[in-house]
């Protein structure tokens, strides 16, 4: 008899790890964005995407809420909000 022994590996995108997020998540204000892409480049999960000004988005399926995007944003256009707070871009 055999139990569970092997697993077919999936790429890391197959594991939706956003549920591990801390109590805060980034909220993109989309007001003063200059499309410098700092937030996308620094994201350790590589889950920020966007090209145009005020059009950057976070994929919350992977975001862990580390807050480095909010910290590095030169225009302070990203703020960390509590997980419970209602927001249309969640």
């Amino acid at each position: 008899m055999f139990g569970p022994l092997t697993v077919n590996p999936v790429k890391s995108k197959g594991s939706k790890t956003g549920s591990w997020r801390t109590l805060l998540r980034p909220h993109y204000l989309h007001k003063n964005c200059i499309a410098c892409k700092m937030c996308a480049m620094i994201c350790p999960e590589d889950c920020v995407s966007g090209k145009e000004k005020n059009a950057f988005l976070v994929d919350y399926n992977y975001c862990k809420g580390c807050g480095v995007c909010a910290d590095i944003c030169p225009k302070k256009d990203i703020e960390m909000v509590s997980e419970e707070s209602k927001s249309e871009d969640k």
Binding site: M1, F2, G3, P4, L5, P9
Partner: peptide
């Protein structure tokens, strides 16, 4: 044909892996 072996089995999976060895031992 990549597979992963011996990796994490959370409480949903672990007992069956052990039970299977116990049964095989008996057989």
């Amino acid at each position: 044909h990549p597979i992963s072996m011996g990796l994490l089995a959370d409480p949903d999976y672990y007992m069956e892996a052990r039970f299977a060895i116990q049964e095989t031992m008996k057989e």
